[in-house]
Design a binder for these strands. Structure first.
Length: 784
RNA sequence: GCGGGCGUGGCGGAAUGGUAGACGCAACGGACUUAAAAUCCGUUUUUCGCAAGGAAGUGCGGGUUCGAGUCCCGCCGCCCGCACCA
């Protein structure tokens, strides 16, 4: 039986979608203005790098944000939903090197084409607030703030051992080194000594850590990752007296950091980093030690090296006097496992209760002394160090005045005695390092500094900002084009007027994205952030993006908000009130028998077997993996939207799979979404022929209101897949209601359209008109 | 090694400690059609049974509870993050 008397025409997204997109733009539906009479809602997705084309990951991310924006708008909020471009970065420069295109032209062309693609998605974005970080009107404020940060003592220039990416020929921050390799290039990172600009993120370490507790609407996983990254530990810093082979006291002491000062009587050696001053100084006289230092440096920091590396040491021929037992002296080694960058770059080794120290002691035949044991158990020397488990009661033995004490009590006692004797102090240490922000690249924000031979480091006067990137640069040799520019770097010193040179390093692009969320509040202001606008809009009520930014971008942004607070640019601490990290878009992979990757669009299923359309040969179906160009398992959003419409793409992205998990793109699933679009169209057209109901408590009416409540709750909690399941239920109920001539048919159809509107806004508008409304969905309140 | 998460039909996945498998996909049967597509009506955890109906069932083994997919303990498997951090 046919549901409709006269079959309606098929829904045509090709006419409907551009029509409504134009209508929203003309009527400025999504342009936000401050309005104190309404509650505000700021929803933001991590802005894209303008690579040239959007991918399905963007579609998923921006669809989620859009659903939230449209839902909150309908629910009565004054919504801010802006978009911009994270436009500085290496790919633009690589395009310049490889194809001779200027990074600026390349970037802006990409922005234009990606903007058109995003518009085709029908996003409810306030395009009047669009920003690009490579625009001088944006980065001049970044430069001004850097100078303010300097004045506030949040900037340092120091020579330090840095991570050098030999492929990208630039320095990387610690956060940007993954498994000992550059996060972009994948090349093994080398260590180099360079003069670098640092932002003092460590100044905020305690606050960045403790404030995590308040971010209750962030994923626990992300909070935990940040907590581990910041890495707070409570311990002691104290100094050993040193003596030489003959027992004569040396002028210098050896300061170590430890969290296990309770095990001081188990100490049998000391170890210092190969980069420790004590070692460097002796290596001048000692060729063998210098060789050792080089070997350690050559080993690098990559994961595989660390795993394979044996503990190696070099006895320095000096000894540390035990602080509480004059009869003991501990040989001091230079050791490859001690990091100069953490603590004091020096430790005492207690092999009985530390795996690493155990390995070292075993190798060099150093004594192993058990000093901690479970309560009521005699200390024994097993075949591995004894490490008490969480909550396990352990007591000190073989430890003089500590004997019988619990671990915490013994720590306390050692700290008390050392502090009383002036040997050391309790100290909280953080793993977090300051953020090195100098990059030896062209396509980034110039660091607004002038180096004067007379005056030293001089900030560019604010009235001369922005320091603009010169456009006439050449990419004909490796390294930084700014360094090779004939004139740009040569300037007069703003202070003495003498000859000086500009800083040619540019900022790490993560700086650009560390404050853009605040700039969106007042994108055209002539200060970085207009205070009144920020007071109204900040913080971001819902931030959405990939979990890959759990540390880098999110930690930097949290730091920036604080630094901007100190310098009076922004009055708030936490930029993102709620965070949601969405999963990836994954897809099957296909290979020819020769091992060539094949695009999904070139694979067809014939009699249950996947076949390559070009050659007709059977394809090997590989794993379901993240969409990537290298494996060619990509589906082009543009082509899909052209064929099936934006609403179909949006609907599919939200269906079935919970938003935080990886979603598998399948053509069958996508087509099913398309069929649902047509089904809604038929149902609504059919419902439109029915009379308005009489508010009787029919089955359909009950079902409708149950679904309204459920969908509202689901969308408030970002459970898009469940909201969609409810909408399917309502469409099933409506279909049954139509057959049963239920009097609530019109009411149900209206609700169906309004509930699906955040996900399928174009279809909703068309359906709303079919149902005889003279208003638009975008201006209709959320149903209750 | 340390830290965290997850194991439910053929698949994606539902389920404030209260009828396990909502909703979707796929598959199968039927209607419509010259035919196909689309659409519509059904079936679809496993198992026994012609049926009515019964039994088992949320990785494995225990426990708490009137009641456990959900809470607790111990395993097994997979995934993610950090990693010589003193």
């Amino acid at each position: 039986m046919s549901v409709t008397a006269v079959a309606p025409e098929r829904y045509n997204h090709r006419t409907a979608e551009p029509k409504w997109q134009a209508w929203w733009t003309e009527n400025r539906c999504f342009e936000a203005t401050e309005d104190a009479s309404r509650p505000k809602y700021y929803v933001l997705e991590m802005f894209p790098y303008p690579s040239g084309r959007i991918h399905m990951g963007h579609v998923r991310n921006y669809t989620m944000g859009d659903v939230i924006a449209r839902f909150r708008r309908a629910a009565g909020y004054n919504v801010l939903h802006p978009m911009g471009w994270d436009a500085f970065g290496m790919p633009a420069e690589n395009a310049a090197i490889e194809r001779g295109i200027h990074p600026k032209g390349w970037t802006y062309d990409n922005i234009a084409s990606m903007k058109a693609q995003l518009k085709n998605m029908g996003l409810a974005i306030d395009w009047s607030r669009e920003i690009a970080t490579c625009d001088p009107s944006y980065y001049r404020h970044e430069q001004a703030m850097f100078i303010d940060f300097m004045k506030a003592g949040l900037v340092e220039r120091r020579v330090s051992l840095v991570n050098w990416d030999p492929v990208d020929m630039t320095v990387l921050a610690n956060e940007q080194v993954i498994d000992g390799k550059g996060w972009r290039s994948g090349a093994p990172v080398e260590k180099r000594e360079l003069a670098q600009w640092f932002l003092k993120i460590t100044a905020f370490a305690p606050d960045l850590l403790s404030a995590l507790d308040g971010l209750t609407t962030w994923p626990d996983k992300v909070r935990l990752m940040q907590k581990n990254w910041i890495g707070r530990s409570e311990g002691m810093r104290f100094t050993f007296e040193l003596e030489d082979e003959a027992g004569a006291v040396l002028p210098e002491g050896l300061t170590v950091y430890t969290t296990r000062h309770d095990t001081i009587f188990g100490a049998t050696f000391c170890a210092v980093s190969a980069d420790h001053p004590l070692v460097k100084e002796r290596a001048i006289q000692d060729a063998e030690l210098e060789t050792f230092r080089k070997d350690v440096a050559a080993l690098g920091t990559s994961e595989e090296n660390i795993e394979r590396a044996e503990k190696k040491g070099y006895a320095l021929g000096i000894y540390a006097r035990h602080p509480f037992d004059a009869s003991k002296r501990l040989p001091v080694y230079a050791a490859n496992f001690v990091l100069m960058g953490y603590g004091e770059g020096a430790i005492f080794g207690c092999p009985g209760h530390d795996q690493r120290d155990w390995d070292f002691a075993t190798k060099y035949n150093l004594p192993i002394l058990p000093v901690v044991t479970p309560k009521g158990v005699a200390a024994i020397l097993g075949d591995k160090p004894f490490l008490e488990k969480d909550g396990e009661e352990a007591v000190l033995v073989n430890s003089d005045f500590l004997n019988g004490m619990t671990v915490p009590a013994a720590k306390n006692e050692v700290a008390r005695r050392m502090e009383a004797a002036g040997m050391g102090t309790r100290k909280v240490n953080f793993r977090l390092r300051d953020w090195g922000v100098s990059r030896q690249r062209y396509w980034g924000c110039p660091i607004p500094i002038i180096h004067c031979e007379v005056c030293g480091i001089v900030p560019v006067p604010k009235k001369e900002l922005p320091v603009e990137l010169p456009e006439d640069v050449k990419f004909d040799k490796p390294g930084n084009p700014l360094l090779h520019h004939p004139t740009w770097r040569h300037v007069n010193c703003p202070q003495c007027g003498g000859k000086a040179t500009r800083e040619t390093d540019t900022f790490d692009t993560f700086i650009d994205s560390s404050w853009y969320y605040a700039r969106f509040c007042s994108p055209k202001a002539d200060v970085p952030v207009d205070a009144a606008a920020a007071k109204y809009w900040m913080g971001v009520d819902q931030y959405i993006g990939g979990v890959e930014h759990a540390i880098l971008h999110l930690l930097y942004s949290r730091f920036y908000a604080r630094a901007m607070g100190v310098t009076g640019h922004l009055e708030m601490d936490e930029p993102f009130k709620a965070l949601f990290t969405q999963g990836m878009v994954i897809h099957e992979t296909f290979r020819t028998p020769e091992g060539e990757w094949v695009l999904p669009s070139d694979a067809v299923q014939k009699d249950g077997v996947w076949v390559y359309v070009v050659t007709g040969e059977a394809l090997e179906v590989g794993g379901v993996e993240k969409m990537s160009k290298s494996k060619k398992n990509v589906v082009d959003p543009d082509t899909f939207i052209e064929t099936y419409g934006a609403d179909t793409a949006r609907w599919f992205m939200l269906s079935d799979t919970p938003p935080e998990r990886d979603i598998e793109w399948t053509s069958a699933g996508a087509e099913a979404s398309w069929r649902f679009v047509q089904r809604i169209w038929r149902l609504v057209n059919d419902a439109a022929t029915h009379a308005t109901g009489n508010h009787a408590a029919t089955d359909l009416r009950r079902a409708t209101h149950k679904v309204i409540a459920a969908v509202t709750d689901d969308l408030e909690n970002l459970r898009f897949n469940r909201a969609i399941a409810r909408i399917y239920e309502l469409s099933n109920a409506l279909q049954a209601g139509l057959a049963a001539k239920d009097s609530a048919v019109r009411e149900a159809a209206d609700a169906l359209v309004l509930l699906m509107a955040p996900m399928m806004p174009h279809l909703a508008e068309e359906c709303w008109a079919v149902l005889g409304h003279s208003t638009t969905v975008v201006d209709t309140p959320w149903p209750k």
